[in-house]
Design a protein around this nucleic acid. Sequence first.
DNA 1: CTGGGACCTGTAGTTACTACAGGTTCAAGG
DNA 2: CCTTGAACCTGTAGTAACTACAGGTCCCAG
Lengths: 147, 147
Amino acid sequence: MAEVPQYMTIGTVSKRTGCKVETIRYYERIGLLPAPVRSLGGHRHYDHDALKRLNFILRARQLGFTLDTVRALLSLADGEGESCAEVEGIAGKHLGEVRGKLDDLAALERVLTDMVARCRGGTMPDCPLIEALSEDDRPGGRRGGWN
Amino acid sequence: MAEVPQYMTIGTVSKRTGCKVETIRYYERIGLLPAPVRSLGGHRHYDHDALKRLNFILRARQLGFTLDTVRALLSLADGEGESCAEVEGIAGKHLGEVRGKLDDLAALERVLTDMVARCRGGTMPDCPLIEALSEDDRPGGRRGGWN
DNA sequence: CTGGGACCTGTAGTTACTACAGGTTCAAGG
DNA sequence: CCTTGAACCTGTAGTAACTACAGGTCCCAG
């Protein structure tokens, strides 16, 4: 007794993730998302794994990771034949970037939280907001070329 | 006795921040950076405050904040005539985004750290990497439209 | 069956940079 | 002082990462 497969159309995936239909097709075209099975008429049928994979991509993008980095992280997740040493190398490299972002975000959170608290107290806060993200004398100094 | 003003050329700022010269000029054109004083020949002369402001912009961008968000945060920092209630509203709104990103990054860090540790132990790790950023059942659910 | 919404592919546009071209400026060295 | 080469200028065009649109097809509910 074959089970009726559960699938979602691209529009449903779009609604569930908030990602535009065109962007989903774009990610498929550049290889980040696997091409899904199609109806006889050519409509895409996505399974739950595809939905999760897309959510990963979207959140990584929102965290400022480039598509190349997303691609590298996905290859880790896919476990495509890498040796343990390679996995460690790739994971370790991206871990550095993740930790840097965490530090920056934590600093930003502290300043914004302080501002909100002070405003509730009725005082206009000083705003060391720029200083929170502008220090260039941390270990490792400035980041390699941003752009 | 007038002090000799310290300034930096755009190339120096570029080298010190890792940001391309063209990008610095772009940020000036779109109003994120104030137009600096110029030499008689038209060369830009930047002070230390401009350097710090640019570092803020670059790091916020690397954290995935849009230029509009960067602009809003900078207006907080500039303290341009907002009331306490307005500051609280703006800061609070961006604080939500910051905390969401923090949660995601923390999850990603945990998975990557675990992978590195397991690889060092000689075992090929499972990789719940996609799951780290794909949960869509958290309080607040999925984010509003990404793109 | 019909009609309207969702889907398809392909093209073009937007945002955020980034490179390049041709001309000018600047400063160090002779 | 003069020369030279690097750095600077403006403006245009290209790239990365989407995003919208157009014209045609598919699909499903009534």
